[in-house]
């Protein structure tokens, strides 16, 4: 093996090691647990067991309520972010997880804040019947709720701008701009240099 091969193999090894160490920090030390006795994960994992049973489900109202006539669809997440989301600095705790809820529109209208980038949604508790494959809704896995109770109010959760990022942004913009100018003018300069000679 010559020096060149050794150097490249060494570089590859270094890249892989850094990738692995980078890839391994994905787990949070202590992510937020689901508030439910039977979390969404459990319901999806054993749908037959819970099919047609009464369940209580607590979670953060996400996105929006879609009103269809007298009823509405809402989605409740009971994942690691239901109390505090990543934008507010929650620890990463895996993918989102939740349940689709079909409930009277009047009940749904009690929710005032839905979770998104700028908001941590209301945490609500519903009681209803779990359907593994709802005959009324094209086989969707859902909960038909009869009542909804507020657990905790949502809030505005603006993600603050960090000064460090601002510095990086400014520096890189200047550098990119400079390179752009040099790239555009290069041929002129080269030609100009030749012409004056």
């Amino acid at each position: 093996m010559n020096k060149r091969t050794a150097a490249i193999l060494g570089l590859l090894a270094a890249i892989s090691v850094s990738l692995f160490s980078g890839g391994c920090v994905a787990k949070a030390s202590d992510p937020q647990k689901s508030p439910n006795e039977f979390p969404s994960g459990t319901l999806v994992e054993s749908p037959k067991r819970f099919d047609g049973t009464n369940v209580a489900f607590t979670g953060e109202a996400i996105g929006e309520s879609m009103v269809r006539g007298d009823y509405a669809w809402i989605h409740l997440n009971d994942d690691a972010y239901y109390l505090k989301n990543v934008e507010e600095g929650a620890e990463l705790g895996g993918l989102n997880s939740g349940m689709a809820i079909w409930l009277p529109a009047v009940e749904a209208s009690k929710i005032s804040i839905f979770g998104d980038y700028k908001h941590q949604g209301d945490v609500v508790r519903i009681d209803g019947v779990f359907n593994a494959a709802c005959p009324e809704h094209g086989g969707d896995m859902d909960i038909h709720a009869t009542s909804l109770a507020m657990v905790s109010q949502g809030r505005h959760a603006a993600d603050p701008v960090t000064p460090g990022k601002l510095m990086w942004a400014a520096g890189l913009v200047l550098l990119a701009g400079a390179l752009w100018v040099v790239d555009r003018k290069w041929d002129d300069w080269a030609l100009g240099g030749r012409a004056t000679r």
Partner: peptide, 27 residues
């Protein structure tokens, strides 16, 4: 979404620095 705006400013600049840089080096 100002924090996200910065993310994109940084990323666009990084792409341009790389792109213009290689174009300058590889004429």
């Amino acid at each position: 979404e100002w924090d996200t705006v910065l993310d994109f400013v940084i990323s666009i600049s990084a792409c341009l620095v790389f792109g213009f840089g290689t174009q300058l080096l590889c004429r």
